[in-house]
Each structure stands twice: as structure tokens, then as C-alpha cells.
Design a protein around this nucleic acid. Sequence first.
DNA 1: ATGCTGCCTGAGAGCGCTCTCACGGGGAGG
DNA 2: CCTCCCCGTGAGAGCGCTCTCAGGCAGCAT
Lengths: 329, 329
Amino acid sequence: MTTRPTLEKVAARAGVSRATVSRVVNGSASVGEDIRRAVLRAVEELGYVPNFAARSLVTQRADTVALVFSEPPVRVFSDDPTFAGIIRGVSQELELADKQLVLMLAGSARGHERVERYTTAGHLDGVIVASMHGADPLPAVLARLGIPVVCSGRPITGNGLPYVDMDNVSGAMQAVSHLVERGRRRIATIAGPPDMVAGIDRLNGYREVLRDSGRRSIIAIGDFTRDSGALAMRQLLDDDPALDAVFVASDMMAFGALKALREAGRRVPDDVAVVGFDDVPSAVYTDPPLTTVRQPTLRMGRELARLLLDPDQSAPVLLPTELVVREST
Amino acid sequence: MTTRPTLEKVAARAGVSRATVSRVVNGSASVGEDIRRAVLRAVEELGYVPNFAARSLVTQRADTVALVFSEPPVRVFSDDPTFAGIIRGVSQELELADKQLVLMLAGSARGHERVERYTTAGHLDGVIVASMHGADPLPAVLARLGIPVVCSGRPITGNGLPYVDMDNVSGAMQAVSHLVERGRRRIATIAGPPDMVAGIDRLNGYREVLRDSGRRSIIAIGDFTRDSGALAMRQLLDDDPALDAVFVASDMMAFGALKALREAGRRVPDDVAVVGFDDVPSAVYTDPPLTTVRQPTLRMGRELARLLLDPDQSAPVLLPTELVVREST
DNA sequence: ATGCTGCCTGAGAGCGCTCTCACGGGGAGG
DNA sequence: CCTCCCCGTGAGAGCGCTCTCAGGCAGCAT
């Protein structure tokens, strides 16, 4: 038990050479059927499992991919389920390719450096970078290390790397158009962080529809958290007490907004209609259930993994979003 | 860029032997100060980073620890923030020890097998097993492989392995006592899965207080998800329409229960008082804000990592829980 | 029967690192 | 001034695996 069997041992047991065992284990063709069987039996009997480090040393591969969140850990692993879907999707797809996923948080400069070292040390043969703020240099740095990199969300400054993104603009437009169709006159928005693509694009979608429908925009900014949503809602109510609708750029913030509205004595949707973005599971459980824009997070994860694994596909992927109408509008 | 510098290269550049460079890189004592400096300069100039596979091959260490969830991925990475806290805690502590964390899902038999192979292949030098159902054989199997294993949550059948657990019994007792003190007469519970320690212990706590206070118990079972909470609440209302309080074994289920209560026209807390368990962030955002039992998830993660890393500590750790009173009671 | 082609197998050289062991030289003690 | 010791350094042997290369043998054509 203490010491694991090596290729050598298996070879001895099967009465063949190391090379042959290696061939069998790696599923190489051209091994005599009887010999193959003998080897497999020896492997079975000894409970042989190839040593990863030894293999990796010679193949220069690690069969491991990292999903890096360029974000303080609080948000990623708090309870924003957007990340959860992505993680699961990536994980599923990677499993099919028999690769292992490791999650890394790189919210700080130290974090960036850790990821870099980890990559350089040869732990990884691919990296997915998610939730970037501003012009995050990390993806480009990693790519320069000679390793495949894909981005989750369009990089704010095109870095030429492949990426997968949600169609945020269209989603926002659907949401706001819906509010317009419902006859709302004063439609505000709680936007996401101005240094994140999801924040920017959703705000642009809002602006566009508002402009086309001849309404004026009423804007507050949040950072995608519940607390910031509540805060922004209070500001909005101060700015324009007569607003009758609000498009919130994330469900988490919408939950905060709902609470602020409740505390301000406004009824939803009677006084103020609310639309969120993300369609997290708990959107069904709010009072009232939240109208929101669904985005395919699981699929995003899968596409990210696929893009990373497929060497000759590098075109960006844009995933559709869809309005889900519930009782908050 | 294509080919990373090796120890050899650094040695050549610094005009010393490989052994010496290795000593410097690994912080060994007894290297002349001037030579050490020369080596460090060479390392710097060449951007040398030790190859992980080569090192691991000889040291037999991987400097990597896995956190495996013996649970279908849906729950772990949905939006139950209990896991999030644990993950962050483990991650923090591991970072201090300069080890990398990898997350593995092992909800299926295939998953178990994957984790086993991964461990045997030498990827890991420690495993934390979380959210076990029933008499999960995984921890013991892994331990038999000769690798440190700790369990998150007391194993349902003592397997002799070190573990960290929340004081679920006491938490439940606090919650139910609180309900009793509030003068509630018919106190029901929505229990967790009967094959999970958290489910069992919380139910026991409930039972104990109820018995002592001469009330009869009214029980429904859920699986810690929102949907199951809603379902269980409806059952409870059927069973005893006159119930005036419910202790719910998880916040997620409590959210479901709140919704079911709302739909049944019951006011909270006027008609029915509700206490949850976990104190997830969104517990503040429900209507009304949820009274619940807080558990130190971050700390749990840290303790798990500490227990794993410290070879000569194997005593179980029991973490305190604390009632947080809000408006739902 | 002999030569040749082609397929299967084995031998052996590393991959980049750590670590043991031996060695050289300087300081202290005789 | 010589010997002993110890400290700092280098040489070299692997860790377990993959992969190239060459050798052997069967089968076919001549």
C-alpha cells in the first residue's frame, strides 16, 4: 500500500517491457491482442495508476485547466449563482475531455502573480479568465506565456483572445422594451460597474431603448451586490420620486432594490415595476417573483471549455439572452 | 519564450552547480551569501520558475489539496452559500501554506472513482471531504491510500478520521427554544435529509426542546433546497393548519417555506413564526428578514485546512452556532 | 529456399529536479 | 606548522514515465 506499483512492476508481472505497458496504458494501436490482455490483467491485479508527475515531466502536459476569477473572492464565492453555472458548465465539458479543473482567485496583484507562477511551473495547459474589471492585463500576460487562454466576457479592450459573452445589449433592450410596452413612463436603471463589460453593455441597451422611445434616462450605479442595489434604489427614489419602473442590471441588485422599495412603501409592480438580469434560481422566490433576463450560464461554461480545448477555433461566441416575465412587472 | 529556463541554465549563468541553485531556490541554509546573491540574480534575469512535475516526481509531494463534494454538482454550485464560505476559508488557509486548492465534484460512483484515481496518480497530498450522505465510504477509501483526509461534518458512521462540524444540535435547540419563549404553541419543523448529519442533528435538537417543553412534534422532510422547503411547508399546513411556528433546517428551505406561507395567505410572523438555519447573506433580504442560526462557515473552512495540514492534530473540532433574531419571529 | 517488407516489441535515452555523498579548503587546536 | 574538523560546493544517481530507434520475426514474393 505504501508504495504504488510502477510501470516497471507491471511490465515484470506481464513479462513484457516498459514500453509495451506504456503503449497499452495509453491506448496505442499495434500491440498484439494477447499481450495487451496480459498487460491489462497485470495492471488490474496490481492496481496500477500512472504517476502523474512522471508523465507530465515528459509529455509537457498537465491535463489541467484553470478557471481564474480576476475578482475578490467575496463575490465569486458568495452567492452569486452566475459563477456557479459557469463553473458547472466548464467542469462538465472538461470532464468529457478527461481534464481536471482548478479554480483560482486572483483578485489582487499577489493573486495575479500566483496564477502566473502556477502557469509557468507547468501546472496548467489552459486558462479561462472570468469577470475581468477594466483593461485586465492578466489574459494577455498568460497568453504570452504560450498557453491557450479564453475570456469569459468580452475583454473591455480587445486583446485578440477568443472569448464567450452573453448578449447583454440585446437582453437589456428586451427588458426595457418590455417596460415601455407595459406603459411605464419614467424608467430608471441601476447599472453595473462601469469597468465591467456586463455593466457597460446593459447600460447601453437601456439607453438605446430609452432614447428611441423618447424617454429620459435616470441612472444609479451599483456593483452587482444586493447592498449596492438597495443603496442605488434609495438614491433613485430621491432623484425621481415619481419613477414607475426600474431596470436593474443584476438579480442580486434587484433583490436589494426590492427591499428598498418595500421599505419606501412602494408596491411592486403597482407603483414601480422591476426587471432584473441573470435569472438566478431565487428570482422565483422573491415577493413578487422577479421578471428578469435569463442568460445561459451553464452553456457559457461549456462554450468556454470547448473554445479552450479546440486549438483552431478562436472566433468569439455570443450567447443569446431571453426575457422571463414574472409578477414584478 | 517557448522554452522555459531550467535549473541547469540558471546554474550555468550563475557559474555554480545545479545543486547549489536548487539549495538557493528551496531556501536551504548554508549557501555562501555572495553565491546566493549571484544565483538569485540569475533566477531573476532568466525568469526561472521551477518545473512542478520534475520537482513533484522526486519529492513525492504535489502541494495540492482537494476539496471534494460528495454530492451532485447542482447543490454545491447552485447558490447555497454554505459551501461558498467553506471554500473561501479553506482557500485562505491553504494560501498561507502555499498550497493550491482544487475542487472536485464526486456525486456519482464515477466521481468517486475519478477522485480515487486522481489521488493515486499523486496529484494530491491531502483531501477534504464535504457534504457526505449516509455512510459515505469515500473518506476511508482515500485514507487507506495513505493520504491525509479530513471530513467536513461528522461522518455518520464514525470512521476515525478527523473532522470539523458545526454544533447543529445546540443551534437547533436555540432556535426552537426561542420559538417557545415567544409563546408559540404548535411548532413544526422542516428537517433536512435523514441521511446527512446536519439533517439528523438539527432534527434531534428540535425534538429535544419540544419534548422538554411538553409540545408534540410536527415534522416534514426536505433536502435543503428551496423547492423542497416550499413543498414541505405545504404538507405541514395540510397536516396541521393551526401551526403557529416552524423551525426550518436550512435558510434555502426557509425561503421556500416563506413563499408557501405567503401563497397560503399566512402572515409571518403574526400567524406563523419562521426560523431558518445557516444565516446566508440573503436572509436579511427576505420579507420579513429571517431569524436564523448563524454558523461560521468561513471558520469551518479554515479549521478544515488547518486540521489537514497539521499532521499531529486529529481531534474533532466543533464550531459554535448562534441565533440571530430578525423579524420573522 | 532466400530476400524483402512491414509490423511488433524491447532497449535506452532523457524530461528537470532533489538529495546523498564525497571532496576541497579554511580555521582552530595541538 | 601540521592535523582534524566542518562548512560549503559539486558530481551523479535516480524519481517514473514516454518515445525514438533498432532489432527480430513472420509472411509474402521471387
